[in-house]
């Protein structure tokens, strides 16, 4: 067993954690498991690729890699725009689908089924537009740096870990220190009372969709950068995302991140110990154990 599994696990865990924060926030406020969340990761990655490609067509200097990374300025610029667009996509899906069902007072199972449908439609649309052939942000190859202790990582990987840390701290501060975060927590505990106290609940729902989609977009772009871009990119992460959100405790931002790292490390360990074909089973096992032993997760509040 090589210690490198720790680095692999941390990197996978960072992406899972970032996506799981989106899941935990939307779940805590909308109160249904949105199975289309994975598609927001995929769409984020493809949108960034399309925008970055367009920028590259206009100015090739923006494609020139920023040393020591594998990508040029086109990608950071595309990331900002893709975050906005992924957020708008989530708002559009809510306005067209989930919002209407909510207003009708539809049961949770209807919303979950609708999210299955949305997931399928969004993924098919990606395959239709971009085909299912894997794509990459850049063709440049990167040399892994020795970090000591037998660990190696590429500059892209280290940057992704750093960006994840910044994003998690930013969201945590937003939730705990700002008026908007307070309103979001209030809506998640008791939407009716939040309304009585003057919180515009529908606005907070839009905020949470946008925030969840933005984080999904970042996670999708990182996955695309470090692995590859595929229409199934987000879909294949869905189980780990939900395992992490539930292990962390629904509504808890630090919980989702920590649990994401736990899931990522467990997957990497399982690959080392029993083989790569067992990777997918890890999230399932974690999910089942948490639901049986501690349904409220690590940091969730008691029901």
């Amino acid at each position: 067993m090589t210690p490198q599994f720790v680095m692999d696990g941390l990197i996978a865990g960072a992406m899972i954690g970032l996506g799981a924060i989106g899941v935990t926030l939307t779940y805590s406020i909308l109160r249904f498991a949105n199975f289309a969340h994975g598609e927001l990761l995929s769409w984020g990655a493809y949108l960034a690729m399309a925008i970055s490609g367009t920028i590259g067509m206009v100015s090739t200097t923006l494609l020139k890699p920023i040393a020591p990374f594998s990508f040029g300025w086109s990608l950071p610029i595309a990331t900002v725009l893709a975050i906005l667009l992924t957020g708008l996509l989530a708002l559009a899906v809510d306005a067209l689908l989930f919002g209407r069902l909510r207003r009708r007072g539809s049961a949770v199972i209807i919303l979950v089924m609708a999210s299955f449908g949305a997931s399928l439609a969004l993924r098919s649309l990606l395959e239709f537009i971009f085909t299912s052939k894997p794509a990459y942000f850049t063709k440049a190859l990167q040399i892994a740096i020795k970090l000591g202790g037998g660990l190696r990582a590429t500059p892209d990987q280290l940057l992704s870990l750093g960006m994840t840390l910044i994003a998690v701290i930013a969201v945590h501060l937003l939730m705990t220190r700002t008026s908007i975060g307070r309103s979001m927590r209030a809506v998640s505990e008791n939407p009716a009372l939040a309304g009585i106290a003057g919180v515009d609940v529908r606005k907070m729902i839009r905020v949470v969709w946008f925030l969840g989609a933005a984080l999904a977009c970042i996670a999708g772009i990182m996955t695309g950068l470090l692995v590859q871009i595929r229409p199934y990119l987000g879909h294949d992460l869905l189980l780990p995302l939900f395992a992490a959100a539930i292990l962390g405790g629904i509504g808890s931002v630090p919980g989702a991140m920590l649990a994401g790292l736990i899931v990522g490390l467990s997957e990497a360990l399982a690959v080392q110990l029993v083989g790569a074909e067992w990777r997918a089973a890890v999230s399932f096992v974690i999910l089942v154990i948490v639901l049986l032993v501690r349904p409220r997760g690590l940091f969730g509040r008691a029901a």
Binding site: S183, E189, V199
Partner: peptide
């Protein structure tokens, strides 16, 4: 359920004051 149990006393008032 007329208060937010998961918010602090101060946060309950801050929320209302918003």
């Amino acid at each position: 359920e007329n208060i937010f149990a998961t918010l602090s006393i101060h946060e309950n008032l801050q929320l209302a004051a918003a």
